[in-house]
Design a protein around this nucleic acid. Structure first.
Lengths: 228, 228
DNA sequence: GAAATATATAAAGATTTTATAAAGACAATC
DNA sequence: GATTGTCTTTATAAAATCTTTATATATTTC
């Protein structure tokens, strides 16, 4: 799942930095513009998921930026401004802003308003599904189907299978798999891997003695391949 | 074109009158409720296009009203409150409020925020009945029927079942369920979940020892699936 | 091909997680 | 203020999962 992108259009570097730190730590991808012109350009190129716009820009009037943006941009726009003048607020909202916060603002509230604004947009719940032959993995639902039937897997088996299928065709080394699934300190426990690979094979191979899907690369690791 | 309906839930008559005058003169149809209970009832009957909710109600906590409304109501909810405490604002927004204004508010701004909220109109019709196999949930009436019979559930059992059925087929993690039903600060109380899952199973599973509907995903969470 | 190394698998042991009952705490209602 | 229903907490049994051990089988190396 890709991180949502936020575009900050604000001329004050301190504000930009403050926002950046908070957005990044909340899992957003952040891009910044220091002027209206730059902001419009970046918005058109990036098509961010949210725009945070300061009305007090040096070059173009903030209201103007908002108006131009709204000619094509349909995702949430949140206004930040020192102006607490009612008419400014009304104008911005009527020009298509989704929300309006006056500086100084509280960061927690801003984050909550961002969440609220972007909530409506994400209605199309991305059902990400991995497919490989008879196997179907619903990553969002965390459900694996084998030949159409729900396959019961433990947490570790699931992680291992997802890792293998995601890297279909590639050889994954013992070390890599152990590090990714069990953690850094388990890189020597190759036997764990053998046990769990055997369990997976019992569940998804026609004939576990002659595996067609999870291939052993002796001395190196394992590789998942589509059944032929 | 029909006028959009606004439901005002507020115990202060002066505020209600002030809002009514302004909404009516802006072309809205206005209905009023003086308590949380009345508000919930009216909302269920009218299905208004917007709800303006005061958090400082005498009978039920405003946050509770919001939570119950959001179980089925998908249109804009705008909060009015004397509370300018940041946590109240964050909580309300995260519980699904679309906007939050602190009293005293400016009428013009309120009207603009109402316009803004109703602009991104959610086209999806509010689904009011959930069905899954033998289970039928009337979200508006908060009534669950099992094999046609009304099933008696406590508030918590109800919320949990709704969450599971709404996400049929997906695994819901312990953390997610605890956060959604008990709140942010209960994310460690896995035992609550176990107790309530057991109670639900006693009520809806043919054989609670071998659950067919509420499936345990050990170490992860629970998943609701249609009986096959 | 034989020795060394690596892998597969079952099964026992250890640990974690889950299910359930039941007691205590709490709040609402009459 | 007793009663009732619900939620929270505690205790314990049961189940599921993970780890370890043992041994057979396969693969690589020389």
């Amino acid at each position: 799942m890709n991180k949502p992108t936020i575009l900050i259009i604000d001329d004050e570097p301190q504000i930009r930095r403050l926002l950046e730190i908070n957005f990044v730590s909340n899992g957003y991808l952040v891009r910044q513009a220091a002027s209206g012109k730059e902001g419009l350009l970046l918005a058109a190129n990036l098509i961010p998921d949210i725009i945070v716009l300061d009305l007090g820009l040096p070059d173009i009037k903030g209201h103007e930026v908002l108006k131009v943006l709204r000619e094509w941009y349909t995702k949430p726009i949140l206004i930040l401004s020192v102006q607490s003048n009612e008419n400014d607020i009304i104008d911005a909202l009527d020009q298509g802003a989704n929300d309006y916060l006056t500086k100084p603002f509280r960061v927690g509230e801003l984050m909550a308003r961002i969440r609220s604004a972007s909530r409506n947009k994400t209605t199309d719940e991305t059902t990400q599904i991995l497919e490989a032959g008879n196997i179907e993995i619903d990553l969002v639902g965390r459900v694996v189907k084998f030949k159409g039937e729900v396959l019961k897997l433990t947490a570790t088996e699931y992680s291992l299978l997802v890792m293998l299928v995601k890297n279909e065709g590639k050889v994954l080394t013992h070390q890599f798999l152990l590090k990714e699934i069990w953690g850094m300190s388990f890189q020597a426990e190759t036997q764990y891997l053998r046990v769990f690979i055997a369990q997976l094979r019992k569940k998804i191979e026609e004939n576990p003695n002659h595996p067609q899907l999870i291939i052993t690369e002796s001395g190196i690791g394992y590789r998942f391949q589509q059944s032929t």
